[in-house]
Design a protein around this nucleic acid. Structure first.
Lengths: 122, 122
DNA sequence: TCCTTGCCTAGATGTTTATCGAATCAAGGC
DNA sequence: GCCTTGATTCGATAAACATCTAGGCAAGGA
């Protein structure tokens, strides 16, 4: 399971998109980008993402105890983050380690570049 | 309805938060920030947001025809964007105009600042 | 005053999602 | 080979959500 996930998002397709505020996004772009935001739109996943992004890598065994949730539930949320292309996992021996995928992260930041907006921001 | 919405997000609370990658986000922060991402996590709302952010202001009558959806559905999505604190609306005569709230937008961008990450990005 | 147009609210419905417990798989130690 | 520990998958369930139609309110023109 570590290397190749099945439905992972196409990062090149994401890379194609200009900032949200630069021009009206068409339906195809929106369909590609929205799942990235959706993945971060849950408090549990946002915390997981933050915990993973705050260190070079982290073991699931260190993520799970930070929540009042069952193992399967954490595993489910991690799967969604993987499928969104935001993180990567690798099994090493007994444990599974998670790492952020900086490309996807960068793309999201670029999309929210407000300096691209047509009005100077109040 | 234009000026004061009821459950609008507290932007100061958002402003308090450091980038996702800077340190593990606590549950309270996540509960405040996740709804912002969630609001952008739907393709329709993402396009609406993009259309609104691409111009100084825009009338609902110019938003609705861009979608294959009923008026009430668009209205529903606009309400969610308002409640997330991402946009603002104002009735002027017959029409209702929407505008982006740059503060919220800026906060989201700041949260995704990857330069705060502990690892230099592969 | 009544009608029309623009937008929103209310209520209903089918789908998606967050969560759990049970079962399964993968690695390592006995 | 068998057991233990770590993590995922499976199946079920309750809550949340996207969408629609019907109805209502606000503003402006006849």
């Amino acid at each position: 399971m570590s290397k190749q996930e099945l439905p992972v998002v196409d990062l090149n397709a994401v890379a194609c998109c200009s900032p949200i505020a630069a021009r009206p996004m068409d339906a195809d772009q929106a369909a590609v980008v929205a799942p990235l935001f959706k993945a971060l739109g849950d408090p549990v996943r946002l915390r997981l993402m933050s915990m993973i992004a705050s260190v070079p890598e982290i073991c699931v065994c260190d993520l799970t105890p930070a929540f009042d949730l069952s193992g399967p539930t954490i595993s489910h949320h991690l799967k969604l983050l993987r499928e969104a292309g935001l993180v990567d996992s690798e099994r090493r021996g007994t444990w599974v380690w998670y790492r952020v995928k900086p490309e996807a992260f960068r793309q999201l930041g670029a999309l929210l570049d407000i300096s691209a907006a047509p009005v100077a921001a109040t």
